[in-house]
């Protein structure tokens, strides 16, 4: 107790009181800070002022200051719009599927990679596993188009193995789309996401495994009772971060893979914003949808954080 207090006093004394002398001594730091704050105000905080547009009948001619306020009309339109409900559902569904499947794949891959005994094999497999992370979605979707086309490898194998009689047009059947998106996400990010889990696994005390082995634990027991509980904090914190991103999960891949035949399942909120805001020039509606997205994101983070608090787990703040 006493030590804690002492440390706190020490901590407080590190940052000095604001005095003329101290200000002068730190003037270089302060000048740099001011430059960066001006930059931040312009590029990060000024756009927040644009949120006003959502409550206006915004016209570029009259601008933000002189456009007519119309209250919540744009939000009312959004919530009455069946398309908006559908894009919201698509976003949440794909975001959730992606979050869960990428988590499972990354943890599974990290555990299995850790079990490889020859270090060269391990290194080679891991290096290959990062590669897709560095490819753009343009390239990944291009590759997917090739692989799933009528003459692509997937249809070729399906037909050759007599799973189906004729090729499947994957990109024009609604029920496949979410699965394709989930597969693409896993293909791209499994190796990358596993880096963190692998680091967590390698930092586990080997004594735990030895003690378990003496008690007669098999490999499965060790993984279930030692490895997984040990990396649970890492899993929790990363999941918390990702929960807020569920609603962000999806612009590029859906935009690039979507097509008119499957638009009902492929369109996400971001695409909706783009379509209304940029293409239809309804800036107010696009902004309203963007605000809604931000709010949902913050609510999701808060929910996730309090769930973690109740469970007594690691949390974000």
């Amino acid at each position: 107790m006493a030590r804690e207090k002492k440390e706190r006093v020490k901590e407080a004394s590190i940052t000095p009181k604001i005095t003329r002398k101290e200000l002068k001594r730190q003037r270089v730091l302060i000048v740099w800070s001011i430059i960066f704050v001006i930059y931040g105000v312009i590029f990060c905080y000024l756009p927040l002022g644009g949120w006003l547009m959502a409550f206006q009948k915004y016209k570029p001619k009259t601008g933000l200051l002189h456009s007519k306020f119309i209250g919540l009309d744009k939000f009312k339109f959004l919530f009455a719009d069946a398309t908006f409900f559908r894009v919201f559902r698509n976003t949440i569904a794909m975001g959730t599927i992606n979050m869960i499947t990428t988590l499972i794949m990354a943890v599974l891959f990290a555990i299995l990679l850790n079990e490889i005994r020859t270090s060269i094999t391990k290194k080679v497999v891991q290096t290959i596993s990062y590669l897709p992370h560095f490819l753009s979605w343009i390239i990944v979707t291009g590759i997917l188009h090739d692989a799933l086309s009528s003459t692509g490898i997937v249809n070729e194998l399906l037909v050759n193995w007599h799973v189906v009689d004729t090729y499947i047009p994957f990109f024009s059947i609604e029920k496949y789309f979410w699965g394709i998106v989930a597969f693409a996400n896993n293909w791209k990010e499994t190796g990358w996401n596993a880096i963190v889990y692998l680091a967590a696994i390698t930092s586990i005390d080997p004594c735990l495994y030895e003690a378990a082995a003496i008690d007669g634990a098999g490999r499965g027991d060790k993984i279930w009772f030692i490895t997984l509980p040990s990396i649970k904090p890492t899993i929790m914190i990363l999941t918390l971060i990702n929960i807020g991103n569920v609603i962000n999960a999806g612009f590029e891949i859906q935009y690039l893979l979507g097509n008119p035949t499957i638009v009902d399942v492929s369109e996400t909120i971001d695409i909706y914003v783009l379509r209304w805001g940029i293409s239809q020039m309804d800036y107010s509606l696009g902004t309203a949808a963007g605000i809604f997205k931000s709010l949902v994101s913050i609510i999701l983070i808060l929910i996730g954080n309090s769930v973690a608090k109740v469970l007594g787990e690691e949390r974000l703040f």
Partner: peptide, 19 residues
């Protein structure tokens, strides 16, 4: 704090575009 806030809140596509 000034910078951490920007991780969670941003103006979104349309206001940024107009800016």
């Amino acid at each position: 704090a000034f910078w951490v806030i920007t991780m969670y809140v941003n103006g979104g596509l349309i206001p940024t575009f107009l800016l």
